[in-house]
């Protein structure tokens, strides 16, 4: 067993254990943290597959941003765990049946049992690159030349998401009290303080 084999099995094992932890742990915060571990060990496997860019993006985007946000939501919401667990046993047979069916079909299509649908033999011919090869650079070259249209349209989709989110949530309430900084800055002492001349009076 080479060192890469060892690393692969270590990270694959960690992925599976962490994924099991996501669905079995009793505390939703623990589940979210297990999901972080799943993503992290997945990204290590991708790193070994020479997909450095994807691996780094997975850590930055999913672990760094999405999951932290998710963790905040889980902690802020008051989730009644006991209530969510109700009916677990009654749903187990049908859920288990579908899980088993999915597994059986996957093993048949991808695995060693059925016909070689996915062409597993081709895996042996996979090209391995040296240390001077940069996955990020190659991806960047393709992204900005061959797939420039798709890249731009993906950007437009993000723009649409921003517009839609603002259009659906921005509300102007007439009763809301707000400050206008520019007016506040422009204000002069004369606007606030009025000196009134009056004759001196003597109180009797």
């Amino acid at each position: 067993m080479t060192i890469t084999d060892f690393l692969f099995f270590a990270f694959a094992g960690a992925t599976i254990m962490a994924a099991l932890g996501v669905v079995t742990s009793r505390n939703p915060v623990h589940s979210a943290l297990f999901l972080v571990l799943t993503f992290f060990s997945c990204s290590a496997i991708w790193l070994m597959l020479e997909a450095e860019f994807l691996a780094i993006t997975l850590v930055l985007v999913y672990v760094g941003a999405v999951m932290v946000l998710f963790l905040f939501v889980v902690m802020m919401l008051d989730i009644n765990v006991a209530k969510m667990r109700e009916g677990f046993v009654s749903y187990l047979p049908i859920g288990g049946l579908f899980a088993f069916l999915m597994l059986a079909v996957m093993v048949y299509v991808v695995g060693p049992v059925g016909p070689d649908v996915m062409g597993a033999a081709a895996l042996d011919n996979a090209v391995q690159h040296g240390p001077e090869y940069s996955n990020t650079e190659e991806l960047g070259k393709i992204l900005y030349t061959d797939y420039v249209l798709a890249f731009e349209i993906a950007a437009i989709i993000l723009l649409v998401a921003i517009i839609a989110a603002i259009a659906l949530t921005l509300r102007r309430r007439p009763t809301t009290k707000y400050q206008t900084p520019s007016k506040q800055i422009k204000v002069k002492s004369a606007d606030r303080l009025k000196v009134i001349k009056s004759d001196a009076e003597v109180l009797k």
């Binding site: 798709a150 349209i153 437009i156 989709i157 649409v160 839609a164 259009a167 659906l168």
Partner: peptide, 25 residues
């Protein structure tokens, strides 16, 4: 002319329509 473009076009269309359905908030 490409699976990617079909999907992106469809998503661009659908995302706009989802938001428009809820337009009358």
């Amino acid at each position: 002319n490409n699976l990617l473009m079909l999907y992106l076009g469809l998503e661009l269309l659908s995302l706009c329509l989802y938001a428009l359905v809820a337009f009358n908030r």
